[in-house]
């Protein structure tokens, strides 16, 4: 089948998609956007988190056909057109929240969505919002630091 949807503001099309392919697979293997990650493909780790019409979802659990005609935002869509890192991306780099980095794309999409709806999250709010994203390297402390930093920088900029 053919699927057509918008990814990071650009219309994308893929042909000969098997009905069983996930949104994650089509993004990674057919659209050349491997930023969303394939850590479990079981909907447990959050590394494949993208926004589907604004809502964070595990793209491994979404059939590609379900995205037909809809808006998808992936980690590749977070930076500005000029390549400038978004606040939350820069904060992850600065705070040391990235080690192996495999969980990072999903965490960035989830954290970005959190800060959009809750610009001043408490630590409890951050933990709750990111509880669907597994990280095996950092022990999460620097990820908390990064989200706090991004929130503070966004607050200063306003």
């Amino acid at each position: 089948m053919r699927v057509t949807f918008t990814v990071n503001g650009r219309r994308q099309e893929a042909d000969d998609v098997w009905e069983g392919e996930s949104l994650l697979y089509v993004l990674r293997e057919r659209m050349g956007l491997p930023g969303s990650k394939n850590a479990c493909e079981q909907g447990e780790c959050g590394s494949c988190t993208v926004r589907l019409d604004g809502v964070p979802v595990c793209s491994c659990l979404v059939a590609a056909g379900q995205a037909e005609g809809r808006e998808v935002v992936t980690v590749e869509g977070l930076a500005g057109e000029d390549g400038r890192l978004s606040t939350v991306q820069q904060a992850f780099v600065d705070a040391g929240a990235v080690q192996c980095g495999f969980c990072t794309p999903g965490l960035l999409v989830a954290a970005d969505e959190l800060l959009e709806r809750n610009p001043e999250p408490t630590d409890g709010d951050i933990r709750e919002a990111l509880s669907g994203n597994l990280c095996r390297c950092t022990g999460y402390e620097k990820i908390l630091d990064a989200v706090r930093l991004a929130a503070a920088r966004t607050g200063e900029a306003v």
Binding site: R28, V75, E76, L78, A79, Q89, V93, V98, G101, P105
Partner: peptide, 18 residues
Amino acid sequence: LRPDGILKVTGEFAYSSD
């Protein structure tokens, strides 16, 4: 800071599954 940090937060870092 990590020299691979920016590649890792933009999704461009080439992991072995990519």
